[in-house]
């Protein structure tokens, strides 16, 4: 009894000394949001499955089996021309295991989503914060450049790139990221403009902190709230863009795959083999839903008006 009492006191003491940051507060609020927490768990599960994909099935993702072409999973209720025993999601048009391919597609789609978002995050935050903080003519020039890039027809741009430089995975990442950073830059710039008028930024200037120090220590950490929210909404956007490009045949190349490629293939065989469309589409929809719920939850959790 005494022991637990003193540990409780010690904990309280540690808490008092450590302080409660706004991030802690936001995390506490997020934990109360069930939809967001369930989404985080589900997304973690999907990511884990994608990571462990090679261990989860005896079949390789590019292992062709001409005996089992477009065969339904063994539990398929509607009846089919052929059944593929041991393939939980059935097989595709060249007899590859669909379960394994959906998970490899998840790897690709999540990777594109994360990498392209990261690219857009790095460029957008640095660019926007610099433009917003410096202001004046530099800001004008930097933001007009963003406006010009915005007005380019993005899909044409990517298609031309893909045709010119062959279909290259790295190029795909860069191309998508290079477009997504524009919105990020605008958001961060707006934040930076309102933050630089705050007294704590003036106090830092009076304390002799350099421009770079102010941007990295004061502007960016305080702009992170809206940025985090926007990131969680960018990831699904990028996944959709990638699948759209893949659907058009401009994305990932065989034998690699992504959800876009799988959905495109599935759509062609919708009548005869609906499972080829249903499983990748379902998984993708769930993933996008999760990201949106997390974004919503984060926005509520980080909103300072709640305080």
């Amino acid at each position: 009894m005494i022991a637990t009492g003193s540990t409780q006191n010690a904990e309280a003491l540690v808490r008092a000394v450590q302080g409660r940051s706004l991030w802690r507060d936001a995390w506490e609020r997020l934990k109360r949001n069930r939809a967001a927490m369930a989404s985080i768990a589900l997304l973690a599960l999907i990511a884990l499955l994608a990571l462990l994909a090679p261990l989860l099935s005896p079949y390789g993702f590019s292992e062709v089996n001409y005996d089992l072409i477009t065969c339904a999973p063994p539990w398929w209720p509607a009846g089919a021309e052929c059944i593929a025993p041991g393939h939980v999601f059935g097989t595709d048009a060249v007899g590859r295991d669909l379960f394994e391919r959906v998970l490899y597609g998840a790897r690709m789609s999540l990777a594109v989503g994360l990498v392209a978002t990261l690219v857009s995050l790095l460029i957008g935050v640095a660019y926007g914060a610099t433009a917003g903080y410096l202001g004046g003519r530099i800001d004008d020039v930097m933001m007009r450049l963003v406006d010009i890039l915005y007005s380019l027809p993005f899909i044409f741009f990517v298609i031309i790139l893909m045709v010119m430089f062959d279909r290259n995975l790295l190029l795909l990442f860069v191309a998508i990221g290079a477009v997504e950073w524009l919105t990020m830059a605008r958001i961060v710039r707006g934040q930076a403009i309102s933050l630089k008028q705050k007294e704590f930024v003036e106090a830092a200037r009076a304390g002799g902190v350099s421009g770079g120090g102010i941007i990295f220590r004061h502007i960016i950490p305080n702009a992170v709230g809206p940025v985090v929210v926007y990131v969680t909404l960018t990831v699904p956007g990028v996944i959709l863009t990638e699948s759209f490009l893949s659907f058009l045949g401009l994305g990932v190349q065989e034998p690699l795959t992504s959800w876009g490629v799988l959905i495109s293939d599935g759509a062609n065989q919708m009548q005869s083999a609906p499972w080829m469309l249903i499983f990748p589409a379902l998984l993708m929809a769930v993933t996008l839903f999760c990201f949106n719920f997390i974004g919503d939850g984060l926005r509520d959790a980080l909103d300072p008006r709640d305080r």
Binding site: G19, S21, W23, P221
Partner: peptide, 8 residues
């Protein structure tokens, strides 16, 4: 307002 809310 004169203190950075995210800094101890």
């Amino acid at each position: 307002a004169s203190l950075d809310p995210r800094m101890p």
